[in-house]
Amino acid sequence: MQAITFENVSYAYKRADEEFSGKAVDGVSLGIEAGRSVALLGANGSGKSTLAKLINGLLLPDSGEVKVFGMPTVCDDPNGLFDIRKRVGMVFQNPDNQQIASIVEDDIAFGPENVGIEREDIGRRIDAALKFTDMERFRYSQISRLSGGQKQRVAIAGALALEPDILILDESTSMLDPKGRKEVMEVARSLNKEKGMTIINITHYMDEAAEADEIYLLKAGKLLKKGTPDEVFSDVSTVEECGLELPRASMLAAKLKAAGINIDQKITTKEGLAEELCKLLLKD
């Protein structure tokens, strides 16, 4: 089943900002299967975040159509958008700007309260969301005292409380330290593997992207390439054209190869590179 489809979607900001002159998203068509984990890559200003906001109707396309589980984001039914937003959770970049309440459990309750869930049911949802994000012991904590990684896990829990089928991480790890990043990625990974949730991860970290089922490369609002991490990262020129780079291990592999060391070009992880080097050096 298609979780998300874009049909020739374009969007331009109506502000005179330099950064967004022209179309932020330009004629994008794509289809994402339910249950996949997808990484959306592109330089700053390439339209990644705009694309994400088009999915849950925070922005509506100027032309073309966006559908979530077959429901178009532009429709006559005033409740239509809420039906979509219930199914699409979104976690943003800045851990400090997403929480409404001061206390963890009150904040997680915000989403379910908005859609009129009964009180007992909200309690049950908070339990489940806290458990999944491993934040149970912080239930009554003040959010401002938590670490960045913990704040982002509260944000994920807040999204989970609406029991979505899709979770969008809009550069959610970019302001975190390595520990916080690992915590957030772990939650995202298990949501995908255990709950079959569709994950859209917008990121600048190539090692996060290397883990995804598929990668979409964006440049100046256009979809330049789509494929598995192996496929995308072996197309070095396109990756560089997008202002991105290969995962560190792939870059080093390429440099080793250029230095005359016979190494497989398809390496994307450090484990892969270590294995390849061992094979190479121990053979002699």
Binding site: P178, L273, A274, C278, L281, L282
Partner: peptide, 20 residues
């Protein structure tokens, strides 16, 4: 210390454990 090794450090370490 729950820190990571740099890639080169990781590779040196792994190779060393294999005797290189």
């Amino acid at each position: 210390l729950r820190l990571d090794l740099p890639l080169t450090g990781y590779l040196c370490q792994t190779l060393k454990s294999k005797g290189v």
